[in-house]
């Protein structure tokens, strides 16, 4: 029972690190494999805010978000000028993001070293006990932060004119121009948002576990698997996939040992895609 519950909370955390990719890969068709590196950048931003200024890691992430947003817009602009405009984004774009991943990782190693870093907050280590159920705050806080972000972004994407344009931009750019919207501007804003969510994702990552610069690589496969499993372009599908993966991984780890959990989670992905090729809620 507690395994299922902590799997559920773990799934919430997976959703937090996958939101950005659900936007960039799911809605903009940009294969940003460097996203986990931006998440780590977020972790270290939270780490600095926490150790140097003594503030809560989540608060530090919120303060860092506008900077991450600008960074995302800049990265998209470079990507657009160098690859997308020339129409050869698929493979070269991939190597661009691969390079970005390594550069970020090496920069972090040079600044912070390869030691594991962690943050202090009053709620880490405590837990909420509800009868037989135990909810560690270390997992509960990331879960809540993640759900608030997902719901907020979902409302923005479905209710605002800008959000609707973001959902449509990858389908037909000329058609979007005919709606009086500039597709490049729309993509730049959306990519900025995607990277801004990495600040929050990084903060919840460092709350859950100590981090070192290369830890992001562990999440590349998982994050893309969650987005594909949920169905590209669907936030609710992504959350369902993240929670499913969290529960399946925790149960496997409890019953058969932790080394089996990646195999089982990718097994779930394969079976789902065999039955529903567009993912759980894919359009």
């Amino acid at each position: 029972m507690n395994a299922i519950l902590s799997g559920l909370l773990l799934g919430g955390f997976y959703a937090a690190v996958s939101i950005g990719v659900a936007i960039s890969f799911g809605m903009l068709d940009i294969v940003n494999i460097a996203h986990p590196a931006f998440i780590l950048l977020g972790s270290y931003a939270a780490f600095i805010g926490n150790t140097v200024f003594g503030i809560d890691p989540i608060l530090a992430a919120i303060i860092a978000m506008p900077l991450f947003y600008l960074l995302g817009m800049l990265v998209y602009q470079v990507y657009y000028v160098a690859f997308e405009r020339r129409d050869d984004q698929s493979l070269r774009g991939l190597s661009f993001f691969f390079g970005l991943l390594f550069i970020t990782e090496v920069t972090l190693v040079m600044i912070f070293g390869v030691d594991y870093r962690l943050v202090q907050a009053s709620y880490i280590g405590d837990k909420l006990t509800l009868g037989p159920l135990e909810l560690p705050f270390r997992l509960l806080v990331p879960f809540l932060v993640s759900m608030i972000t997902v719901v907020g972004l979902q409302l923005f994407l479905s209710r605002s004119f800008l959000g609707r344009a973001i959902q449509a931009v990858a389908q037909d750019q000329l058609a979007l121009r005919l709606m009086a919207a500039n597709p490049i501007r729309i993509k730049r804003i959306a990519f900025g948002l995607s990277i801004a969510t990495a600040a929050l994702g990084g903060a919840v990552l460092i709350i859950i576990q100590p981090v070192e610069p290369s830890i992001g690589r562990e999440y590349i496969g998982r994050v893309f698997a969650i987005c594909v499993l949920g169905g590209l372009g669907s936030f609710s599908g992504m959350v369902i996939a993240a929670v499913t993966l969290g529960v399946v991984e925790t149960l496997t780890a409890t019953l058969f040992g932790p080394s089996w959990s990646p195999a089982v989670s990718f097994g779930v992905l394969l079976i789902t895609l065999a039955v529903r090729p567009n993912g759980i809620l894919g359009r």
């Binding site: 389908q171 037909d172 979007l176 709606m179």
Partner: peptide, 21 residues
């Protein structure tokens, strides 16, 4: 335009809402 250029994966209502951008 020729070929209509709708947003195929958006609903009818979402296409109309985008028209009012």
């Amino acid at each position: 335009p020729e070929g209509r250029r709708l947003f195929p994966k958006q609903s009818v209502l979402e296409n109309l809402q985008l028209g009012a951008y």
